[in-house]
Design a binder for these strands. Structure first.
Length: 310
DNA sequence: CACCACCCCTGGACGC
DNA sequence: TGCGTCCAGGGGTGGT
């Protein structure tokens, strides 16, 4: 599930392949995954009817999705990615749970006979395809459709609207800002760290890893985190996320980068998914609990600060 | 403000 | 083999 390291890996691998190329065509097979900010004027998540996303008009849609633009930059904030065209248009990509962006062709090394499409990229649930001037294509795939695309008239509009609602990126936040954010909420520490408005980029996997590394219990009240502990959280965050990026992210089931490569960090989890297994530090069984509605594993002995109940 | 249930959605695991 | 059921999860929404 794409969190910051996976999205950053996609940004880098995609950028290498597509920046400088021109989008010569866009195919949209499922318009419902595209949100157009400039349609309806009520923001990107405006829906019509019951839970129905509002698609933009056909011509406007392809143009808004960068048809005719040269791809100038790939940016990231938290778990969100943005493709910026040379003319200023922008498309924000959120991969949700199961989304991927894969470059397909025109590589002569494309293997044949693999499952799915060219290069082994799975070909079902492909909702949007960008055709590039070198014959390659970028496929937006999202089986569970928790992700989507948001179109913007400019990078500034993207940053001032959608990204302005997010907290500081997890790789850029300072100890002072993290401490300030944590100190004003009585929520569980894990709940606070998952809040993208407080800090952007952490999901269930890396929060569990972060809290294990820093020996803080997920149910510690966020406001009780000291300045020193905030400093340790920030340092550990940068180290863990940096290591995960270096490993190409974590692949649990579906995740692949823009070149269809799986990540390698999943073999290094110390907490996530290890409930019932011995803690790597003290040997006690890792506990399984639900925090913020998410399955959580933590060491009941090493990770301190949970507020006793009753 | 904070918490909760619920919704979106698919596929994989598991039981029968 | 083929069902049914449960579960995973980010994020939005609406109710308490």
């Amino acid at each position: 599930m794409p969190e910051l390291p996976e999205v950053e890996t996609v940004r880098r691998t995609l950028g290498e392949r597509v920046l400088g190329r021109q989008v010569v065509g866009v195919r949209v097979s499922r318009p419902g995954v595209v949100y157009a900010l400039n349609e309806g004027g009520r923001g990107p998540s405006r829906r019509i009817g019951k839970n129905r996303r509002r698609p933009a008009g056909e011509v406007t849609l392809r143009r808004a999705l960068l048809e005719g633009e040269r791809l100038a930059r790939a940016d990231r904030h938290g778990k969100q990615l943005a493709l910026i065209g040379g003319g200023g248009l922008g498309v924000c990509v959120h991969l949700g749970m199961s989304g991927s962006l894969c470059v397909v062709g025109p590589s002569p090394a494309t293997p044949s006979g693999e499952p799915g499409g060219p290069g082994g990229v799975k070909a079902d649930h492909v909702h949007v395809v960008w055709q590039l001037d070198d014959g390659a294509e970028v496929w937006f795939r999202d089986p569970r459709r928790f992700g989507g695309l948001w179109t913007f008239e400019s990078e500034a509009q993207l940053r001032q609207t959608r990204w302005a609602k997010l907290g500081h990126d997890a790789l850029a936040i300072t100890p002072g800002r993290l401490h300030a954010g944590l100190s004003r909420t009585q929520r569980d520490l894990k709940t606070a760290l998952l809040d993208q408005q407080l800090v952007a980029g952490l999901g269930n996997i890396y929060v569990d890893e972060l809290l294990y590394t820093t020996r803080l219990h997920p149910q510690k009240i966020a406001a009780t985190v000291t300045k020193a502990q905030s400093g340790r959280l920030v340092r550990a965050m940068r180290r863990i996320l940096g290591n995960a990026i270096a490993a190409g992210g974590s692949t649990l089931r579906d995740y692949v980068d823009a070149t269809n490569q799986a990540g390698g960090y999943q073999t290094r989890f110390k907490a996530y998914g290890r409930a019932g297994q011995p803690c790597g530090r003290c040997g006690r069984a890792m506990e399984s609990l639900i925090v913020a509605g998410r399955s959580t594993s933590a060491c009941p002995a090493c990770q301190r600060g949970a507020t006793p109940i009753g």
